[in-house]
Amino acid sequence: MNETEPLDHSVCKATVRPIRDALDVLNGKWKLPIIVALTFGEKRFGEIAKEIDGITDRMLSKELQDLVANGLVRRTVEDTFPIRVTYALTPHSQSLNEVIESLRKWGILHRAYLVNEEK
Rank of each mutant, 00 (worst) to 15 (best):
M1G: 15
N2Q: 11
T4P: 01
E5A: 14
E5K: 15
E5R: 15
P6D: 06
L7G: 10
L7S: 11
L7K: 10
L7Y: 13
L7C: 09
A14N: 10
A14F: 03
A14V: 02
T15C: 05
T15K: 01
V16I: 14
V16T: 12
R17F: 14
R17C: 14
R20Q: 14
A22R: 15
L23Y: 08
D24L: 13
D24P: 10
D24F: 11
V25P: 03
V25F: 01
V25K: 15
L26F: 07
N27I: 04
G28F: 08
K29G: 05
K29A: 04
W30P: 01
W30M: 12
W30D: 02
P33D: 00
I35D: 07
I35M: 08
V36N: 06
V36T: 14
V36W: 04
A37D: 08
A37R: 12
T39S: 10
F40L: 13
F40P: 03
G41Q: 02
G41W: 06
G41I: 08
E42V: 00
K43W: 10
R44H: 12
R44G: 09
R44D: 07
F45P: 13
F45C: 02
G46E: 14
I48N: 09
A49L: 14
A49D: 11
K50W: 05
E51Q: 15
E51V: 06
E51L: 12
E51C: 07
E51H: 15
I52L: 12
G54Y: 03
G54N: 08
I55V: 15
I55K: 01
T56S: 15
D57V: 03
D57F: 02
K62S: 14
L64K: 00
Q65G: 11
Q65Y: 09
Q65K: 12
D66R: 14
D66P: 06
L67Q: 12
V68N: 10
G71K: 13
L72F: 12
L72E: 05
V73Y: 09
R74A: 07
R74P: 02
R75Y: 12
T76P: 05
V77Q: 13
V77W: 02
V77P: 01
E78K: 06
E78T: 02
F81D: 05
F81E: 07
I83M: 04
I83E: 04
R84G: 01
V85C: 00
T90S: 05
T90K: 05
P91D: 10
P91Q: 06
S93E: 04
Q94M: 09
Q94V: 02
S95I: 03
L96M: 02
N97K: 06
N97V: 13
N97M: 09
E98P: 04
S102I: 07
L103C: 11
R104Y: 10
K105N: 05
K105M: 05
G107E: 01
L109M: 07
L109W: 04
H110M: 08
H110W: 07
H110E: 00
R111W: 00
R111T: 01
R111A: 07
A112H: 06
Y113I: 06
Y113S: 02
L114E: 00
V115P: 00
V115M: 10
V115T: 01
E118I: 10
K119I: 04
K119M: 03
K119C: 00
